[in-house]
Design a protein around this nucleic acid. Sequence first.
DNA 1: CGGGCTTTGTAACCTAAGTCACTGTAGAAT
DNA 2: ATTCTACAGTGACTTAGGTTACAAAGCCCG
Lengths: 210, 210
Amino acid sequence: MLKELQESYGKIFEEGLMNEINQVGTLKEVPEGFKLMEIGDYIKSMPLLISGAIKILREDGDGDELLLYYLERGETCSMTMTCCMGDSKSEIRAIAETDTKLIMIPVAKMEEWTAKYKSWRNFVFDSYHTRLNELLNTLDTIAFSKMDERLIAYLKEKARVNKSNSIHNTHQEIAYELHSSRVVISRLLKKLERMGKIELHRNYLKILAL
Amino acid sequence: MLKELQESYGKIFEEGLMNEINQVGTLKEVPEGFKLMEIGDYIKSMPLLISGAIKILREDGDGDELLLYYLERGETCSMTMTCCMGDSKSEIRAIAETDTKLIMIPVAKMEEWTAKYKSWRNFVFDSYHTRLNELLNTLDTIAFSKMDERLIAYLKEKARVNKSNSIHNTHQEIAYELHSSRVVISRLLKKLERMGKIELHRNYLKILAL
DNA sequence: CGGGCTTTGTAACCTAAGTCACTGTAGAAT
DNA sequence: ATTCTACAGTGACTTAGGTTACAAAGCCCG
């Protein structure tokens, strides 16, 4: 585990902290689609991402979903932290977007390290910072953009975290994450194809130029 | 200042911390409508609310506004904290919703206290926690609710923070904060009046039963 | 009192997006 | 090869909400 840890966090954590993480953390590998957290769960450990990506989703009372953002290498889930400290339930769902490696830290260590290690405090504050800004961005897109722009932004972001210009999802799946309907997404995708920006296939699409 | 401090924060901060706040903080009173922070500002001090309420607004590139949430007694602005630590610009605008009393703390103290006082750490984490949840709620409302529900929620919340069932705003002002148009808001308000839930007047309205 | 603001009410219209219903089709399964 | 099924395409229609335009109050102030 030490090797992975070094690569992703070596530059930001102090040596003492690295050693502690190495001792109490457990390396975990999960496949694409693996559900790491469900709404209403109590959380007992906190993830540090080594590789891959995790998508964070929000759901309303009627089961309608909405993609909030992705977590990537070197990041952690601020929601988890707030849950742990506040001893409250998860407000979100977390699903592996790609095959993902992460280190799980027992919650108990969190507060201890916050008092003990400056680099940990900075990391935690930085996570909150990043997350708040991601949430603001998501909110902007929803409040100020129409569906066509949101779709384009979604495709770009998805291509980025998956490091591929092929997006392997059905229109229905895309519709879920954008909280829209299949018909609307099909319509807009077709329009993008006619503009020469993407190429549609069964079960996947290719981004040509967005 | 010590008196105000005691009333709002006496129960949560350690004595040593209270003394420090008393020494480096400055009491500030601002009238309703006072702009405390503008998008793009660099922040050099952090507010602790004593009384009143502050509304936090987001704006897109075209000048369209959106109300995010209110800060109230005993709370602070997480955005400010992230800005200070990350040394970045403000992403939001802050305007006093009512006459407001607050204590301003120089940014420099923040990190020092985080290492030194457990109660301060808890306060800061708790603020992040509350703010993340408020943002999620706002996002829910926008993503999953229609304008009529959003309007009702808005009126209720506004009545709550103002501690009054009279809301002194023009339809235009309400429209701005909900990122809608005056005509739409007038239409929906009229509908609420016809349902006997509110009473409309020039420049203000009264909530009867929501 | 009588202009000259600002605010509110309303009708007519437009557009984005959601819904329903149906067809076409690629690919897996038999 | 034929059938079956999930996925995709499309027309027709509905609705929420935005836009334009204008009339009617309310209100300030000379």
